[in-house]
Simulated scan of single mutants.
Amino acid sequence: MPKPLFGNGTTPVPTPAPAPAPAPAPVPVRVQAPAAPARAPAPAFPGIAVARPPVLDLVTDPEGTASAKVMAEARTLAVALAERLGEARFVAEFGSAVQARIGALPDRMLDLVRSEVPNDVTARMGRIRGQITGLSVDDLFAADGGVASRVLRSLAPAQDRLGDAIRAVELECAGIDAALPKLRAGLDEIEAMIAEEAAAREELEAHIRALQAVLALHARPEAADPRLASALRALEDRGTGLRQSRIVATTDAAQLEVLRLRYAELHAGARSLTVDLVGLWKRNCVQSIAILAQGTRAAPREVRTAATGLRGAADGITAAIDALSPGPNGRMGGRNAP
C-alpha cells in the first residue's frame, strides 16, 4: 500500500499532459503552366503560306510620290488582304467604301454649280455696270454735247440722272450684300469637299498599293488551287475599278478647285465692289451734283476735277465687274476673257 504523500493522507492525482497542437495545414502551391504559343493565322488556302514580311516588302513607292500616311495604311491593308484572300466577300468589297465616298462628290458639286446665288450676284453686277456706263460724263458736264445731249438734258437734268443712278446702284448693292453670306457658306462647303476628296484619294491610293502587293505576292502560286486563281482574278477586277476611281477623283479635284476659285473670287470681288468701288463712285456723284447745281457759276477747274473723278470711279467699277464675270470658258475674266 503506498504511503500518503500529504499529511491528510491523500494521494495526488497525476495531471494529464496537454495534447500536442495540430500541425498547420499545408499551403497549396499553384504551378502555372507555360502559356501556349500564339497560333499563326491560318493561311487563306491550304498549302499556300502567307508570311507577313514578304507582303510588307512588296508595298513599295518607287516613284516617291506617296506620303508616309499612305504607305503605312497600305502595309496594314496588304497584310489584311493577304490573310483574308480566301474570303470572297472581303475581296469583292475591298476599297468599295472609299469608292462610294468619291462617287458622292459629283452630286454635291452639281448642287453648287446649279446654285442661283452666284448667278444672281453676277446679274446684279451686270445691272450696276449698265447704270454706270449709261451715264456719259461728257454729256453730264459739257455745255453743248450735240442735239441728242441737249434733248436728254432737257428731259432729265444731270443732277436728277445722277440721283436716279445712285438709287438704282444702291438697290443692287443691297441685294449683293444679302447674298454674300450665302457665297461664303458655299465656299466653306467647297473647301470641306476638297479636304474630303484629298483624304479619299489618299485612302484609295493605299488600297491600290496594297492590292498590287498581294497580286505580286501570288504572281507565281505555290499550289494550283482553283480557288486561289478565282480570288486573284476577282482581285484584279477590283484593281481595275479602283484605278478608274482614281482617275475620276483626279478629275473631281480639278473641278473642285475651279469651283472654289469662282466662289472665292466672286465673294471677295463683290464685297470690294459694294464697299470700296461703289462707295468711291457715290462720293464722286455727290460732288458732281454739287458742281452741276452751280451751273455756270462753277469754276472750270472744279468742273474738270469732278468730271475726271466721276469718270475714273466709273471705269474702276466696270473693270472690276468685267473681271468677275464668267467668260466663254466658264472662268473669271468676263468680257476680257479670251
Rank of each mutant, 00 (worst) to 15 (best):
D144F: 10
G146K: 04
G146I: 11
L152N: 08
R153Q: 14
S154Y: 03
L155Y: 06
L155V: 06
P157L: 12
P157W: 10
A158H: 01
D160Q: 13
R161Q: 04
R161Y: 03
L162Y: 04
G163Y: 00
I166T: 10
R167A: 12
R167Y: 02
V169P: 03
E170P: 04
L171G: 10
C173F: 01
A174D: 13
I176C: 03
I176F: 05
D177A: 13
D177N: 05
D177W: 00
D177F: 06
A178W: 08
A178R: 07
A178M: 08
A179D: 15
L183C: 02
G186N: 08
I190Q: 02
E191L: 11
M193R: 01
A195R: 05
A195H: 06
A198K: 15
A200C: 11
A200S: 15
R201G: 11
E202S: 04
E202Q: 15
A206F: 06
H207A: 09
H207I: 04
Q212D: 08
Q212R: 07
A213T: 06
L215T: 03
A216G: 13
H218T: 04
H218V: 04
R220P: 03
E222G: 09
E222N: 04
E222Q: 06
A223H: 08
A224G: 05
P226T: 10
P226Y: 11
L228Q: 06
L228S: 11
A231K: 02
A234K: 09
E236T: 12
R238Y: 03
S245G: 07
R246M: 09
I247C: 02
D252H: 05
D252K: 00
A253D: 14
A253W: 07
A253K: 05
A253H: 04
Q255S: 15
L256H: 11
L259G: 07
R260M: 02
R260C: 12
L261S: 15
L261F: 10
L261P: 00
R262T: 10
A264I: 02
G269Q: 09
R271M: 13
R271W: 15
R271S: 13
S272R: 11
T274Y: 07
